[in-house]
Design a protein around this nucleic acid. Sequence first.
DNA 1: TTGACAGGTTATCACTTGATTACTTATGGT
DNA 2: ACCATAAGTAATCAAGTGATAACCTGTCAA
Lengths: 196, 196
Amino acid sequence: MTAPPVPRMNADDRRELVLRAATRAFARGGFHGTSTDAVAKEAGVSQPYVVRIFGTKLELFLEVFARSSDQIRSVFEDVLAQARAEGTAPTDDEVWLRLGLAYAEMLADRDFLQVLMHGFSAGSVPEIGAQARAGMGQIYATLMGTGCEPERAKDFIAQGMLLNVMVSMQAPEHSEAGDDLAGLTVCAFGDALAEM
Amino acid sequence: MTAPPVPRMNADDRRELVLRAATRAFARGGFHGTSTDAVAKEAGVSQPYVVRIFGTKLELFLEVFARSSDQIRSVFEDVLAQARAEGTAPTDDEVWLRLGLAYAEMLADRDFLQVLMHGFSAGSVPEIGAQARAGMGQIYATLMGTGCEPERAKDFIAQGMLLNVMVSMQAPEHSEAGDDLAGLTVCAFGDALAEM
DNA sequence: TTGACAGGTTATCACTTGATTACTTATGGT
DNA sequence: ACCATAAGTAATCAAGTGATAACCTGTCAA
């Protein structure tokens, strides 16, 4: 009688689907502000199944965070790899421009960045703090792979953090002319603002 | 029989005391990750009393956030006022140096900064998002009071956001030599690292 | 003295939430 | 055909949570 509303799926695919759903859910509420049931509803499965796949909510969050962190890092690595392939000197300003553009493209898919911010803020949960530091360390190390001065990488990351914060507080959606924040929004996002 | 373990206090003082305790508590766990009971324990009062003073947990958080935001802004305003009093041109690099130093001093009392980060990340709670944007807008406006280019204020805020993030993830406490993150920590905090 | 108000607490409630258990049903290999 | 295994759900639970209600108790003015 109970028709199977959810078609069967192999475990790996289902896991992937739930992970993506969890990324969207955690992007909104962070670790504490998102229930496993919210993740389940987002994924279209039952709450106990979410728990069964990942063991605990914390493990799920850690995996979602690690993915987001890796996503950023791998985008940067791709840019650097391509630059090397083209023979562009890694210290060239051109490379940093491209890194910035690559980051701007990620703004369209804000979930990763918001998950990142939540992870960074949740340092009081020891496991999350540790993974946040590791993720940030890897991103920094990747950027330093250009052979640049630490200052350069730091400034780049700082700009990224500002964008993350602005995205998290939904500045682009809520900036109207005349607003104090509007000036900062325009300045921080620049051209990327047009496509948001 | 039940001795009064908590000495009586007038309402304003008690409110102030609870607000400070709430700042410490929220700095750790953010809005969702901190119970009103945790705040109460931090303040040494009963949980219902916390609720009664502030109405709801959300109102309490908003007040704590507003205070943190105002704290930052007023520190900046003081620096600018003093610079003006000394006749230092507001566009002078000297002013930005002092703003940076003032911010570095606040790192010692991290609670404000961590509360700020939590507020910025919690944009999905409408009231918090609105207040976060307002707070950031005011800080930006204050910095623009130097008469500088938007870029300058933006870059300053970006550096601040990086420091906030690093503080939130407890990078200074967990950076050991050889760690990927250590390089970034040293670079971002600079001299301020010595006194942490 | 007394009594009214201000400053608190204890008891309690309805609800949420993460997790466990037990059950159900496709599906593919033999 | 059949059954073992994999993919999922329904039912349930104990703990935690925000909020309410009822009560207690110094203190100070009249």
